[in-house]
Design a protein around this nucleic acid. Structure first.
Length: 705
DNA sequence: CTTAGGG
DNA sequence: CCCTAAG
């Protein structure tokens, strides 16, 4: 804990290493996808040197077993990395099979940081992957400066292996180096290029571009933050979820739209829809349950905007099934992936996912199959907390500055047959990760521990600009697929804590399958199936998408990574299934009262479509409101009708304009008679209803009709 | 998967 | 909102 503090505070005093600044300006790159070559190289060099030391340390420590992690390299004087090794792994490990987690992000504070908003950008998520028998993969992240005034690179990759009886754990620490820029003192940008040796992260949407992931605030300033990811320390019980140490870099965009864009393509495609709801639900439940317990009130973040806001919502019929809900499609994605994979691969987001579900999934009986090895891939829910932001209140345009301290990535489970090749494993992992981190990331905003759902509200309206609120502001990164998942992050109190860590863990308890450095991105060598080989290869860093992007970096990264072999036995000991039970609990979705605008949209839709066609209503007016299912709409209508029938004094919640209630009654009366038999075709009917409203005698008029 | 209702 | 029976 102490260490942490040091990190936190240390940053302020941190001086950027006198590293030559990259020629390019960081700013320019910001939004563009740029490859960080120069700077990276520098970074890598640094990393390499560090890596060498680290490796030595880690190796030596590795032999000693668990506590390796204690080394905390200090870089740049002020920056330190920590590892948590000692955590109470047992329970966690047993349950989740993952343990250590610590990721550190270096934080750079600029002199001006006080007044600047700190924004962390995590272009890439890093994760540590643990592979059975050995494989620890460490990632090294290197950061670069795109040409920043200050450049510091801190990379530390450390691998620690903890052996727990009956379990195998591998922990690796990855450090991410980041470059911090100070821009005129006003803005800072930090660029982190993470090279994951492990392979994670690919954000289809982000297209590997670190910059893409960056959060952009209007007019704003990005500041570099240090993110510290102390693993395991989560105060929250939910933390029990095993985490592995990883550094995760996440890019966050505040811009919902951007997000949407990324996601949309996927969501819209019909292909993804299929998997179904059942799975969806199930997963959702599982996921939620776990996290929800901790922080029930927090929920998913939703960025989608209700179609009605946009104005015309119709004509979606064609899309229907295709578009349905994002959640769905995402899940679907997972399932699909599963099918596509040679062997079955199951990926779940969120720690809540139980291994059972995965294993037992009807699709495959992989579970007990001896031939199949299962690998658990954990990505902790990504969550972040915002710290040290300051807001200016001056004008409307005032900017609010945010500092994001940490992220957690949701837990993922991946199952693959023992016979799977390394290459396939890599692919699987990548797919799994990309499925979640890729296009499916969503960012949630938490204020006072509660999720801010209304994306349409301004920061000012939401109160995010006030200092007090800023202190309680948090962000969550969640997989889009399951709506529930988001909550995970947010739910978890830990999320708000600065210490959150993100980790991705890949572990295969039973099978010796190994990854040979799970780098698939690499020009990849033929898949290795041999364990021995694998072990050897494990040392290699796993490549991440980033790697793919920047191939040159690989060599360096490899050097950095040291992966202590894990005993096969230990690995074997970990039962995947054990986890499963815990996730039984289902958490309720957070309550999200309908806004007047939503009610209006609903009323309008029902007027046109009638009751009994909730799916159409959903598609028509709430297609983009993923959190509103047709069932929700139906229920809301039910309550609206009730509300309209009771005395205003008895109504609760945000008052619904009487005008709308009148329309509700009118539509309800109308459709009750017509049973929506004639459906929307009766434009006339609609018109009549509408007219009736206008008259204000709605119900009666309609009835008279 | 959707609907329709009860809880 | 959740859960579920029906379709």
């Amino acid at each position: 804990m102490v260490v942490k503090k040091r990190q936190y505070y240390g940053f302020n005093g941190f001086h950027m290493p006198p590293v030559p600044r990259a020629p390019r300006s960081a700013r320019g790159r910001g939004l563009n996808k740029m490859k960080v070559e120069d700077s990276q190289i520098c970074a890598f060099e640094l990393l390499a040197s560090l890596a060498g030391k680290l490796l030595q340390e880690s190796e030596s420590s590795a032999s000693s077993n668990a506590s390796e992690a204690n080394d905390q390299p200090i870089i740049g004087g002020g920056v330190k990395f920590e590892q948590d090794d000692d955590r109470p792994l047992k329970a966690e490990c047993l349950d989740h099979g993952s343990c250590g987690e610590s990721a550190l992000f270096t934080r750079f504070s600029s002199p001006n940081s006080d007044q600047k908003c700190l924004l962390n950008e995590f272009p890439h998520a890093e994760s540590n992957l643990f592979l059975e028998r050995s494989s620890m993969i460490t990632n090294s992240n290197s950061s670069k400066n795109g040409g920043a005034d200050l450049k510091s690179v801190i990379c530390k990759s450390k691998s620690a292996c903890e052996n727990i009886p009956g379990k195998v754990e591998g922990s690796s620490d990855s450090r991410v180096s980041c470059d911090g820029y100070v821009d005129n003192g006003l803005s800072r940008q930090k660029r982190c290029d993470g090279l994951d040796t492990r392979g994670l992260i690919v954000d289809p949407c982000s297209s590997n571009d670190p910059m893409e992931m960056c959060m952009k605030f209007p007019a704003l300033i990005n500041s570099v933050n240090n993110v510290e990811l102390p693993s395991c320390r989560d105060p929250v019980p939910s933390a029990s979820i095993p985490r592995h140490r990883n550094g995760t870099k996440l890019g966050i965009r505040d811009d919902d739209e951007n997000f949407t864009r990324c996601n949309k393509p996927l969501t819209k495609s019909k292909a993804f829809r299929p998997p179904q709801r059942i799975g969806d639900r199930r997963i959702r439940k599982l996921l939620t349950s776990k996290y929800w317990k901790v922080a029930p009130k927090l929920k998913d973040c939703e960025f989608s905007k209700p179609a009605f806001l946009e104005g015309g919502a119709k004509s979606h019929y064609l899309k229907r099934k295709l578009c349905y809900s994002r959640e769905r499609y995402q899940l679907n994605t997972f399932y699909k992936r599963r099918k596509f994979t040679d062997h079955s691969v199951v990926v779940t987001s969120d720690g809540g996912f139980s291994s059972e579900s995965v294993c037992n999934s009807p699709d495959k009986n992989m579970t007990g199959d001896k031939n199949g090895a299962s690998i658990m891939f954990h990505a902790n829910g990504v969550s972040s907390s915002v710290i040290g932001h300051q807001a200016s209140f001056h004008s409307k345009d005032s900017q609010v500055k945010f500092s994001i301290k940490s992220f957690r990535v949701p837990e993922l489970l991946i199952e693959v047959p023992e016979t799977a090749t390394v290459g396939s494993l890599k692919r699987t992992v990548v797919e799994a990760v990309s499925a979640i981190l890729g296009g499916g990331l969503r960012v949630g905003v938490l204020l006072h521990g509660k999720k801010v759902r209304d994306d349409n509200r301004t920061l000012l309206q939401t109160g995010i600009t006030s200092n007090e609120n800023l202190d309680t502001l948090g962000f969550s990164l969640e997989p889009t697929p399951v709506q529930v998942s988001p909550p995970l992050c947010t739910e978890d109190p830990a999320a708000l804590l600065p210490c959150d860590t993100s980790q991705l863990i890949l572990r295969s308890p039973t099978t010796p399958i190994v990854d040979s450095g799970v780098s698939d991105a690499l020009p990849d060598p033929p898949p290795l199936t041999n364990l021995d080989t694998n072990i050897e290869s494990n040392r290699e860093s796993v490549s991440s998408h980033a790697d793919i992007v920047t191939d040159n970096t690989l060599p360096d990264s490899r050097a950095l990574v040291a992966v202590p072999p894990v005993n096969a036995e230990e690995l074997a000991m970990v039962p995947l299934n054990q986890k499963s039970k815990r996730s039984e609990l289902v958490q309720r979705r957070t309550r999200r009262p309908f806004s007047v605008s939503e009610v209006e949209a609903l009323v309008h839709a029902v007027e046109e479509l009638g009751t009994g066609r909730w799916r159409d209503v959903k598609l028509c007016s709430f297609e983009d409101a993923d959190h509103r299912t047709y069932v929700d709409l139906k229920d809301k209508w039910k309550t609206l009708v009730h509300t309209a029938q009771i005395a205003p004094q008895q109504r609760r919640g945000e008052p619904v304009p009487q005008e709308l209630l009148d329309r509700v009654l009118a539509a309800h009366a109308y459709w009750s008679q017509h049973q929506a038999k004639q459906h929307s075709k009766n434009q006339t009917a609609i018109l009549k209803i509408t007219d009736a409203h206008a008259v204000r005698n709605g119900v009666q008029d309609i009835q008279s009709i």
